[in-house]
């Protein structure tokens, strides 16, 4: 078990005008699963590849288990990585795929056999060791990729969007398996994803990234309950947080709120109330079973306001519904800097 620390890490591609990562620091505690989440192009994969040693670090320092690894080859960093496309060796059997890294390190044959068998049982792959990757389903391939990472017993696992090639149902199932596996092995992990739901469910520590910089670090609940910026407020949570000018909902805006402030209310915090201050002209009602998502307009606003309510609440397009929001459901942001106020 070991921690990973990044200090003022920069990445500038030669020929690029702006740095991909202008300078970023992050501490990952031993045994923790840290999820980097952000939109595509935010630098999260680049960051992961720098930790893996697949991209050069332009400036700053990366340390794994207290050891500076900037100038070490990927093989010497004691990490293993699960790739988005799994990167299984197509001409090798499942067994050889998992054993390859161990063979390269000169491990004795019976030890290799023991470790691979153990991992195969853990992942439910014991009947498939003699097969080639092309004879496996997407989910099985994904598990072989996991197995290849596990058998090495490395200091850290790196996951680069490992679930994005699976269908929705399998993704949820595999997500749980990864969480379970990581909790059992307690191996420090960095997990990159663009899927905020995946990020919320997996993370011990959630790192929201935007344009090469960290917007917020915290536990998933902290990030959800107190988003540090407009970006985080819009990115984490589904459907996204409603962001309204104080003039649209004067009674909800604190007296101290500056003119350029924005009020954020999560759709889940919109509570139907006959005397509520928010009056929505309902346009569309999406019935999801347990809940319904109501899209409506506030007078004078261009974009929809979204409310998520229990499906028992009667709602029909064309009606006007009134909502209130409890005090702790109202977030206040500075519209100019994008930062949270208060």
């Amino acid at each position: 078990m070991s921690d990973i620390s990044l200090r003022d890490v920069r990445k500038v591609y030669s020929g690029a005008e702006a740095p991909t990562i202008p300078g970023l620091s992050l501490e990952i505690v031993s045994g923790e699963l840290c999820v980097l989440v952000g939109p595509s192009g935010c630098g999260k994969s680049t960051l992961l590849r720098m930790v893996a040693g697949l991209e050069e670090v332009s400036d700053g320092e990366i340390a794994i288990a207290g050891r500076r690894v900037n100038d070490l080859e990927p093989a010497e960093r004691d990490i293993s990585m699960v790739f988005q496309n799994y990167a299984l060796y197509p001409h090798m059997t499942v067994f050889n795929n998992m054993a390859y890294g161990l063979k390269n390190r000169g491990m004795p044959k019976d030890e290799i056999r023991r470790r691979v068998d153990e991992a195969a049982v853990m992942l439910g792959l014991d009947g498939f060791l003699a097969r080639r990757p092309r004879e496996l389903s997407g989910g099985q391939r994904q598990r072989v990729a996991m197995g290849r990472a596990i058998v090495r017993e490395p200091a850290a696992f790196l996951f680069d969007e490992p679930l994005s090639n699976l269908d929705a149902k399998l993704r949820v199932k595999t997500r749980v398996e990864i969480r379970d596996l990581q909790q059992r092995l307690r191996t420090t992990s960095i997990y990159v994803t663009h899927d905020q739901q995946e990020a919320m469910t997996l993370a011990d520590k959630l790192v929201v990234m935007n344009a090469g910089q960290i917007e917020q670090i915290g536990t998933p609940i902290e990030v959800y309950e107190r988003p540090a910026s407009l970006f985080v407020a819009g990115f984490i949570g589904s459907p996204p947080m409603n962001l309204l000018p104080p003039s649209a909902v004067p009674s909800l805006a604190p007296a101290s709120a500056p003119e350029h402030a924005l009020i954020g209310i999560r759709p889940e915090s919109m509570v139907p109330a006959d005397d509520g201050p928010i009056a929505l002209d309902v346009r569309v009602v999406e019935r999801l079973g347990a809940t319904s998502t109501i899209h409506g307009r506030l007078p004078g606003l261009e974009s929809d306001v979204i409310a998520s309510v229990p499906s028992t609440v009667p709602a029909d397009p064309g009606r006007t519904m009134r909502f209130s929001s409890p005090g702790d459901g109202v977030h206040l942001f500075d519209g100019r800097t994008g930062r949270r106020l208060g």
Binding site: A52, G53, L54, E73, P74, A75, I79, S80, M81, F83, Q84, N85, A87, Y89, P90, H91, Y100, G101, N104, R105, R148, R152
Partner: peptide
């Protein structure tokens, strides 16, 4: 040959020559 294959091999501890002989050449 997908670049991630040679990257995976590099993480798996294979040097450039070994990567060529065991990954690229068979493919």
């Amino acid at each position: 040959i997908p670049k991630s294959l040679t990257e995976a091999a590099a993480i798996d501890g294979a040097g450039p020559v070994k990567r060529f002989v065991t990954i690229q050449l068979p493919l």
